[in-house]
Design a protein around this nucleic acid. Sequence first.
RNA 1: GGCAUCGUGGCCGAGUGGCUAGGCACAGCUCUGCAAAAGCUUGUACAGCGGUUCGAAUCCGCUCGAUGCCUCCA
Length: 493
Amino acid sequence: MQLFKNQTLKVSNSLTGKKEVFKPIKEGYIGMYVCGPTVYSNVHLGNCRTFMSFDMIFRYFRHLGYKVRYVRNITDAGHLENDADDGEDKIAKKAKLEQLEPMEVVQRYTVDFHETLQKFNFLPPSIEPTATGHIIEQIEIIKEILEKGFAYERNGSVYFDVVKFNETHDYGKLSGRKLEDMIANTRDLAAQDEKRNPQDFALWKKAEAQHIMRWPSPWGDGFPGWHLECTAMSTKYLGENFDIHGGGMDLKFPHHECEIAQAEASNGHSPVNYWLHANMLTLNGKKMSKSTDNNIYPNEIFSGDNNILSKAYAPSVVRFFMLQAHYTSILDLSDDALLASEKGYYRLMDGLKSLADVPTSPTTDFDIKAWQQRCYDAMNDDFNTPILISHLFEAIKHINLIKGGKESISENDKALLQRIFKDFVFEVLGLENPQQSDNNSETLSGVVQLLIQLRNNARANKDFATSDKIRDELAAMGVQLKDGKEGTTFSIN
RNA sequence: GGCAUCGUGGCCGAGUGGCUAGGCACAGCUCUGCAAAAGCUUGUACAGCGGUUCGAAUCCGCUCGAUGCCUCCA
């Protein structure tokens, strides 16, 4: 099904600052690269929001019938800690701290990353390359940039010459900065550097004797610079020019700006047609960040073991919460917001569940085709999941009216509605049906049905003490009974 | 200091010139043995000031406030 032929999708392109009609380089195919995590600690919730945004985008492209090659890297070589640390990288630093081999650190946190993403029901990317697996490619790119004259070597390190590059190219076009402004506003710390200009960035860094992670190169033993791995891996798997590059807003400058510069300097091509940036998740109004301790880990939310939230929340609830905001907006995490999302999420799931048992009629009081197109329109407008969700709730309302006998739906339309719901709720939004994940659901369901029968018998005999006992004790166990026109149903929270 | 983004009703959060976003909470009603669930109805909004316009939450200017980037971070 090549749905994309009938749908016009618009995306917010950071490169132009505009919402543009999306047109892939090759019809029917999409190449997408997203900057992945640095695996030197557990993945925090802010990271998850970015990857969730692109998981949703990946899912929608697939739903539209595109063949997508989605590349998301693992940064296992570490970036430079900061200038003051003089070349010690994050992975190596953590390794010393914990008395582990660097690759042991990498392994531990890569596993954590995958486990967490699986709980959130993320689809795996098509390729998940590692920085350390692409040292040769990175060295090749450095050679090309040196040949073109946009880099220089100093004492075993290689730096990108931003000023020279800017003479013939536009350094700052993605982030809206001008090199002159950057130079004028540079806080000149200690002018200790080997760099010609403070704006220059490292392509290759010489490894000091104590540095553990090191590779041989034409410039001596060292390790690759901060921005090079993404250029190497995106070029290798998606080509010199590809459709979409995504990442968190905080990577726009300098990381993505430098990627553009590296690609243009080495092969002359602007690497990416559409730059997509997901916005930050904040906690207490501030950006979540590992370095400032203003963060919460996914497992702390799932277990309720934290000082911020009043209770535990399921991964699906957190996913639903995040998708209720647009991916380009800042979203603030709070207990009130999660509680509201949790209720809404169960309302959506309950409504969806009751659709299966709804009675049918010869006619339908609700234009399902028009509603379906409104759902597509929402997604086509820069993946507007909050609007899509509002449409889903509109349909839930109709379902509840049908259930209550106030509206009707035909057999065919019911099947159609079920299919569309399945498409958007499970396939596109990637939500999970809480009932399906329960292994003992059949047994449990039978037991509850039996209790419902006993309660109804008691009610018929006006033995309300017994009926209320059954209802209240079940409620205390998290099983809620709902008396409707068609009999009593239940849901488990 | 520079660049950028944002400020929507009790809370979260869509919406870029005129038409009900949605969820949660609150109130009333219907239903119910009573509740819950569901449905119906209602309310309080667009930070402030000024401008453009027949008309602005939406465009422009200023003020105030918040956030992000400018140094590793999604």
